[in-house]
């Protein structure tokens, strides 16, 4: 491997050696791209209630509905075209997953780094609180918070952040404790630079590798958690179905042979989460110095 290449290019070359991860990355890009550009690929806007025709409800895949187009994956109980609903649902799921992941990253990462930098009682207070929170299942916490905040996209995102920032905080804390004792931090403090500058410009950037790994996994987890909450009826309003709610809506028809209402959103969810996790695994392996060649 050439040494003059920039770290990013070297990282990419190593990443590309793992075919599975490369395929997974392709799938992630494809799914995200399809979700972002959903209006271009879908025959129907599933959120426009005026366009829904109840006569088309629960039709099997391949049915040509009253709109004159083929329902590739069938329709759900409200007469929504499932293909359209899945792409729009992915849109919501990815949006919530990314927003929650990003906010949790910033909040948790800062908290962990501040705790590691401050040390003493502040550190003990922050980290014990986070340990306490981690001892509860994330889904329980998310359920309680969304029950308090009510339904809606932002309420759901807040609930996800509140149940996930702790993972970032603990990872950032562990990495920051190691960085804190390094000489360049001492050098920065002896300049002197303010604590804020030292934490956010010196410690945190050097904690990025483990945080990025946690971030990929947590985005996938946020999407899964959002789907779970929606499935349980705690998430989004019925008029804007995310993947979890589509699965939930089709659930009651499973045993009557109308499998497609639940199965296809489920497959979309599994493919997306699996692909993100595979990408995350590869990044983790590459950043783990013990596995470095």
């Amino acid at each position: 491997m050439r040494r003059d290449a920039s770290p990013f290019i070297r990282f990419w070359r190593e990443f590309a050696e793992n075919r599975l991860a490369l395929v997974a990355l392709g799938v992630v890009i494809l799914v995200v791209g399809a979700a972002v550009l959903a209006p271009l690929f879908t025959p129907q806007d599933p959120y426009d209630i005026g366009k829904l025709v109840l006569g088309d409800a629960r039709r099997p895949p391949g049915h040509v509905g009253s709109g004159g187009y083929v329902h590739l994956l069938g329709t759900d109980a409200q007469g929504r075209d499932l293909w359209s609903a899945i792409l729009y649902g992915l849109r919501i799921s990815i949006q919530i997953g990314l927003t929650a992941g990003a906010v949790a990253f910033i909040v948790g990462g800062s908290l962990g780094a501040v705790a590691a930098f401050a040390g003493g009682r502040i550190e003990a207070l922050i980290m014990r609180f986070i340990d306490l929170q981690l001892s509860f299942p994330a889904i329980l916490l998310a359920l309680v918070i969304s029950a308090i905040l009510g339904q809606g996209k932002w309420q759901l995102t807040a609930a996800l952040v509140a149940s996930q920032y702790a993972y970032f905080a603990r990872t950032a804390h562990g990495a920051a404790v190691a960085e804190r004792s390094k000489e360049y931090i001492e050098a920065a403090l002896s300049t002197p630079l303010s604590s804020r500058v030292v934490i956010f410009r010196h410690i945190l950037p050097n904690c990025m590798p483990p945080l990025i790994v946690v971030a990929t996994v947590q985005v996938a987890n946020a999407i899964a958690l959002e789907a779970t909450l929606s499935f349980l009826g705690m998430g989004l309003p019925v008029t804007h179905p995310s993947l979890g709610m589509l699965i939930s809506n089709g659930f009651q028809y499973m045993l009557s042979g109308r499998y497609w209402i639940s199965i296809y959103p489920g497959i979309a969810l599994i493919v997306l989460i699996l692909a993100i996790n595979l990408v995350g695994d590869q990044i983790r392996d590459q950043l783990n110095p013990r596995l470095q060649r």
């Binding site: 390094k182 000489e183 360049y184 001492e186 050098a187 920065a188 002896s190 300049t191 630079l193 500058v197 410009r201 010196h202 950037p205 050097n206």
Partner: peptide, 25 residues
Amino acid sequence: VQTVFQDPFASLNPRRRIGDAIAEG
């Protein structure tokens, strides 16, 4: 009072360009 440290591999932040490191203070 400024300090030059023992280990130049540890005393420079690996993620900062040296121009930024020098200009920061």
